[in-house]
Design a protein around this nucleic acid. Structure first.
Lengths: 337, 337
DNA sequence: CTGAAAGCGCTTACAG
DNA sequence: CTGAAAGCGCTTACAG
């Protein structure tokens, strides 16, 4: 079946509305209307045209339409690092909505560089209907300028005048601190992420306030990179700080820290309790399983795309929130220390 | 939360070559040539035009060009499941080449469905310059038909007449079996992947022959899904089979199996040795760390895209190969069993 | 309801 | 080297 489709494809040119118009004995304008303005054409004519179009294997050329309408039917998702597991669910959530809405999703990676991000968004700007900027490293002004030419939604960042999606974090962070407090921790550390990251600053300040409010001492410990290796490299400094528990900027760092502790025979959670952020793939498979603050990445991705598709009306009733997931990488500090 | 996105962006129209031509006092054709046929225009004129273009913030409209040239500058990567960690490196490899070549990468997900895949590729066909089909579920004929209208490269699958990238697997699989044999295993199982998967059949038949050649007994054990949960669900059947070692279709299944064994207090590798496939993120972080056959996904992704960029002819000098990575989920079967 | 015509932004023979 | 003109495939007022 459908061999004529393949055969047509085999030939050089794809059929155009002129071919369909010719075959159906109507004008190109009528074909155009029949195919994408249902109801604007005589029902029986429309049906006839559709049949001819199918028979010819006609397919709309989105480029030609885009030249006129300015709408390409594609949305861009800009990430700092496509392979960071933290983005999987976000990508999937975004992809789901795009598929459901018949939009095409374009993914681009900025490698944590503001310049790369700027270059990429400038290039994509022309060919997409809207952009989702995840953990953008660009200046507020650059983002606002971009938002002036195309619909933009920022995720995990806040920019005045630009719609944004940031999960509520305070309550779950409070729950995590309460948990640590009850276990007996009084001195906690924050293993920081990239300095240029808005989310890093946000997490740190939220944590800072929450810890103080509970009478716990809190210290910021820098890391070399928001990666497994960055976590591994930080163990020595974390231990030196004298804290009994550490919250990491993200799970990747937390997992690296955990792996290194294990490799060096450091007892987790006895000597050090570790809390991650995001609940990425694998966090629950480790031994001990990683206690973490789960980010609702999937809903965030879906929400961000919806905002673009609907022209700005968010579909989420309640804003997404992170959730405290206690597992076994947190426990009472052992007296031995 | 997201507020209003679309109104703000309604504003300024992007400058066209006509605007640039006007500003520079030349004709639009000259602007076009100056901007993308370096050398076809007086050097000083070209420079002047470029300056005007920059000053106006001119940016080529890729759609308008595509209508004429048929080239969109974008390539599609079609995956069954965007969130399967196995594809991360592949995506990254593909993305790197695209970025280097100034191409835009479009990602689409087929959800393991041949129909969805067909619909998506048909839709994308018109708007991309080429497609990479990863682990395609479509019929050979459908793939060939697609390949007749656009350059296509299949990954982890073989289709007559279509360029493909499949890593060499026999030698590493041999190494894995030798390893198991030396540890004392004589009876191994294959925890299978999706029936519709070409790669599943390929791995099974390669394993089958290799096991027989070594005088080991081999049995195929079906799984419910190529996921963590699929692996978890398979433990009972794996144990019932009486094998002392199992090779899984992929790491996801293997990790699920491992996690479930651990949860049930089954000794790995004492009671059961487990070998995965691909070496995905997290495989080395488990306890025990997962022995696996690493797929060179990154090179595969890069290769596939390169083949498209070069005009459809794959230039694989040496085919990529999987690599045996022994870790601690394999060991001697304990006598207790 | 339908057609003729203009035009979206760009490229490319074709002349000069 | 440069310009005038035609045209890519489609959409959309504007008439009828």
């Amino acid at each position: 079946m459908a061999t004529n489709v393949s055969d047509e494809a085999a030939g050089k040119a794809s059929p155009t509305i002129y071919d369909v118009a010719h075959a159906a004995g109507v004008s190109p304008s009528t074909v155009s209307r029949a195919l994408n303005k249902p109801g604007r054409v005589n029902a029986i004519t429309e049906k006839m045209i559709r049949e001819h179009a199918d028979a010819l294997g006609y397919q709309l050329n989105p480029m030609a339409r885009a030249v006129i309408t300015g709408k390409t039917g594609t949305l861009a998702l800009i990430l700092s690092d496509i392979t960071n597991p933290v983005y999987f669910d976000l990508i999937r959530g975004a992809g789901k909505i795009c598929a459901a809405e018949g939009r095409t999703l374009v993914l681009a990676e900025t490698q944590e560089s503001a310049e790369t991000e700027h270059a990429i968004t400038q290039r994509l700007r022309v060919s997409v209907d809207g952009l989702v900027l995840v953990a953008s490293r660009m200046h507020d002004d650059q983002i606002r300028a971009l938002a002036r030419s195309k619909p933009v939604v920022v995720v995990n960042r806040r920019v005045d005048g630009v719609p944004s999606v940031v999960p509520e974090t305070e309550s779950s962070l409070g729950a995590a601190l309460d948990h640590l407090f009850e276990l007996g921790h009084r001195s906690v550390g924050y293993l920081a992420g990239p300095i240029a990251s808005w989310m890093n600053a946000f997490r740190w300040s939220t944590l800072f306030e929450s810890a103080l409010a509970r009478g716990m001492s809190i210290v910021e410990i820098s890391s070399t990179a928001p990666t497994l290796q960055g976590g591994r490299d930080s163990l020595k400094r974390v231990l030196a700080s004298g804290v009994t528990a550490v919250l990491a900027y993200n799970d990747l760092i937390a997992m690296g820290l955990l792996a290194e502790a294990k490799a060096q025979g450091i007892d987790v959670p006895g000597r050090l309790s570790i809390v991650g952020f995001d609940d990425i793939f694998g966090a629950d498979l480790l031994t001990p399983a990683l206690t973490t603050l789960r980010s609702p990445l999937r809903e965030i991705g879906a929400h961000a795309i919806s905002a673009l598709v609907d022209g700005g009306i968010p579909q989420l009733a309640a804003p997404p929130a992170t959730e405290f997931i206690p597992r076994s990488s947190t426990g009472s500090p052992s007296r031995a220390v």
